[in-house]
């Protein structure tokens, strides 16, 4: 028993879903670990020309842990409805 999928969900190509999920994942990761990332930026071994790429790649590799179905479920959910507590 599953909810009928909205059309928009069907329309998005896997590539789009991947890109949107990656962007969401990075946004969340930078939000959750902002402080730690600042600390890394001021570490002795931080080199702007190469370390930024390393950090981004390291953070976003976590998207590999999600199946295509999971990614779609996250990026294709419609506006959360607010209800009174």
């Amino acid at each position: 028993m599953s909810s009928p999928e909205p059309q928009q969900q069907q329309q998005k190509s896997q590539k789009q879903v991947d890109a949107e999920f990656t962007s969401y994942y990075l946004q969340r990761a930078t939000q959750e670990f902002g402080e730690a990332l600042d600390a890394v930026r001021s570490a002795d071994d931080f080199k702007p020309e190469s370390s930024i790429a390393v950090l981004i790649s390291a953070l976003q590799q976590g998207t590999e842990m999600f199946s295509e179905e999971d990614k779609r479920a996250v990026v294709c959910s419609e506006g959360a409805e607010k209800s009174s507590k």
Binding site: A39, V40, D44, D45, F46, S51, V54
Partner: peptide, 18 residues
């Protein structure tokens, strides 16, 4: 250690494991 090197190494190990 909270350093770029450690994070790079962790990312490399993650990629190896998967």
């Amino acid at each position: 250690k909270l350093s770029a090197t450690w994070i790079g190494y962790a990312a490399f190990l993650f990629n190896t494991v998967i």
